[in-house]
Amino acid sequence: MSVTTLTRDVTWPGLRPWLGTLVRLGLAAVWLFAGAAKVGDLAGSGRAVNAYQVMPFEVAKVIGAALPFVEITLGVLLVVGLATRAAAAISSALLLVFIAGISSAWARGLSIDCGCFGSGGQLAAGQSPSYAPEIARDLGFLVLAAFLLVWPRTRLSIDRWLEGTT
């Protein structure tokens, strides 16, 4: 009897919602840091978007100003575990756009900072871009988002609490 309890405790279905909580909080931290780093310099955020040279400057300014607020909101949704699957889906979509943007900057031979965590897309003189690590990092974040997209039910979440109310 005690043996079956023990094995049941460490099974994947038992562990997964807790692992999901860790993943959710990890992805939340990513968005909160990314947003907080940019929110104090919205003009710089717009310049960072513009540095990719994929849209007119006026559009880049709008995206650059909106993005930090969207990132922080995503972070808050993930911290409290509300609409986890939707937040994971939007996270995945955003990360795919970022990865595409960095790849295209790399392919076009641009010399920019990704601006992922602030810094306004500016690369200090003599500093070479680090596209591969930036893409690898975003792919790691994408794995977190994909986990939550597949298994959005996590412990210590508002989603779970709502589930219990019906």
């Binding site: 919205l42 717009g46 100003a65 909106a66 607020f69 969207v70």
Partner: peptide
Amino acid sequence: IAGLIGWGVYQ
């Protein structure tokens, strides 16, 4: 709405 607020703050 968060995105729109960002644009508004910038403006």
